[in-house]
């Protein structure tokens, strides 16, 4: 899409009707008004109305938990579907998951309790105050050893460095400085996760070249792979 906005993955089938005794849940994660949230569609494919919906999360890597109760107008009639958003916070119990961004969810209704796993896109945990002070950025960049730097290429990205800056900023990845060296734009960026982990990045953008070089530096190497994935998805979508 040509329009730049907050990146939200398409809804996925988290609970197929065949495993939910007729309840199908399609869902995705996004971030709205400074909070992560789950956006879901509940579809009753059973032949009886459904009532008594509730949701609970297992412990997870970032302590995500529902901020409010699930709001589903009941009864959910046979063949009816309803869209719902569940605001989340990160003050829940923490347990490192493998994969890191996996979350186990239980949904209850009048028929049974159902369990499914979902993958949280890490960018919904990028906070709004993730712009690192420039002086702190330089010191941190030098302080993190080269062994903690991971490079990757983002392909098929026909974006100028200014477009990249804007798109990333809408997703709470902030450009701290920009320099142009030999026609190559170098962007120095920062982001902060809800648990206080900082990630520093350098983007090398050559005008007209659809491949962008991404270098990440962080002390928390566990998150690097997911951050790379987030950059790729934000910049390709």
């Amino acid at each position: 899409s040509g329009t730049s906005e907050v990146y939200t993955p398409a809804k996925q089938a988290w609970l197929p009707a065949s495993k939910g005794k007729g309840l199908e849940i399609m869902g995705t994660f996004n971030r709205k008004q400074g909070k992560p949230q789950m956006s879901m569609t509940f579809h009753n494919k059973a032949m009886q109305p459904m009532t008594g919906f509730a949701v609970q999360f297992n412990k997870n890597s970032f302590g995500l938990q529902p901020l409010t109760a699930l709001t589903i107008p009941t009864p959910l009639s046979a063949n009816q579907s309803i869209d719902t958003c569940l605001a989340l916070n990160t003050r829940g119990a923490i347990q490192r998951m493998d994969p890191l961004m996996n979350i186990q969810v239980a949904v209850k209704n009048c028929i049974d309790v159902f369990y499914f796993s979902a993958t949280i896109p890490i960018n919904v945990l990028f906070v709004e105050d993730g712009q690192m002070d420039r002086k702190v950025f330089l010191a941190t960049w030098k302080d993190i050893p080269p062994s903690n730097e991971v490079q990757a290429q983002i392909t098929n990205c026909s974006m100028s460095s200014d477009q990249a800056t804007n798109r990333l900023q809408q997703n709470n990845i902030f450009t701290v400085a920009k320099r142009t060296v030999d026609g190559q734009d170098m962007l120095y960026q920062s982001l902060k996760l809800t648990n206080g982990i900082w990630v520093l990045a350098e983007l090398k953008v050559v005008p007209g070249n659809p491949t962008i070089q991404l270098s990440l530096k962080t002390r928390a190497m566990d998150v690097v792979q997911d951050i790379q994935k987030a950059y790729t998805e934000i910049m390709q979508n």
Binding site: R134, K135, T180, V181, D182, Q184, Y188, E202, K204, Q213
Partner: peptide, 20 residues
């Protein structure tokens, strides 16, 4: 935003990491 020392540090960082 207008600290010339910091501006210079970023320029040096970018130059040191540029792939011509």
């Amino acid at each position: 935003e207008d600290d010339p020392d910091l501006d210079d540090c970023f320029s040096k960082l970018a130059e040191s990491r540029s792939n011509p």
